[in-house]
Design a protein around this nucleic acid. Structure first.
Lengths: 138, 138
DNA sequence: GCTCTAAATGAGATTATTTCTCAATAAGTA
DNA sequence: TACTTATTGAGAAATAATCTCATTTAGAGC
């Protein structure tokens, strides 16, 4: 049910305590494939651990971003959302209805390599978003 | 000096009035290649038109996004920024210092085409961000 | 150029979001 | 089990975003 990608272990091995708040947040992140915003993380986290506070959600997300475990992201509204920082992210975003599709086929590894050489930049992950119109909105 | 990409004309032909506020905002957007946030647009816009108000900046940016002339974007902090929606955007973002580099070499047109066929999605533009470490931070 | 009208504006109020503070709590170590 | 220090919750404070409404003005028509 929960597709863990090991955030808890990574927090722990980075020297952070595994508190109920953090475990609740991590469980929410790992059990939702959508791109969650702070509010959604708080609301879902409180289902697991009712005492969870907003401040802790902000603090924990800040921590996870700092550790490069999650990354912030905009979709079609001005709300900050989060996705796993592991691997690349690939979205098709409809400019009209805001629908977001993910695709896994991604062939930019060669480009990544070329850029890393050209700019002496160590590339760890990427975000590729195509914007346009989905079938329904065309 | 000003590399116009014709925002004013596009606003006009979409039926919107060309007010001093809007012209100031558009001039700021067209003369800065960086990714500006609301505050920066306001401050720079007030140098051109001192009466420019914050509300008008928010309203105008919302309008430009709605018309798909600009697009909102996150970089390394929680501030909403804007880039031209025309063409693709390509960034190398350093996870450590937040430095952002742009690159123009972009070879994902074939991928875009494949995806448009596979998902019946009409692709208008794209955003490609690589995250990692810049030379100085490695 | 002048008049008219609806769109647009500015200023500040309101609301929402994010960050901060600090006393209380509890995770993990010994 | 006790201790230490990181972490927390609750609300205050700060910041950001939105809304309201009286006033102004761009642009169309004359």
């Amino acid at each position: 049910m929960v597709i863990t990608f090991g955030l808890a272990q990574k927090l722990k091995s980075a020297g952070y305590k595994l508190t109920p708040s953090r475990l609740a947040i991590v469980e929410v992140l790992e059990s939702h494939s959508e791109h969650l915003c702070h509010n959604q993380i708080l609301e879902n986290g409180q289902k697991i651990y009712p005492h969870l506070s907003r401040a802790t959600v902000y603090r924990t997300m800040e921590l996870l971003v700092e550790l490069h475990l999650m990354r912030p992201l905009y979709l079609n509204d001005p709300t900050q959302r989060f996705v796993s920082a592991a691997g690349g992210h690939h979205h098709l975003i409809c400019s009209n209805c805001g629908a977001t599709f993910e695709f896994d086929h991604c062939t930019i590894d060669q480009l990544a390599f070329d850029l890393s050489v050209k700019y002496h930049f160590q590339i760890n992950n990427h975000l590729l978003e195509f914007q346009g119109l989905c079938e329904a909105c065309q």
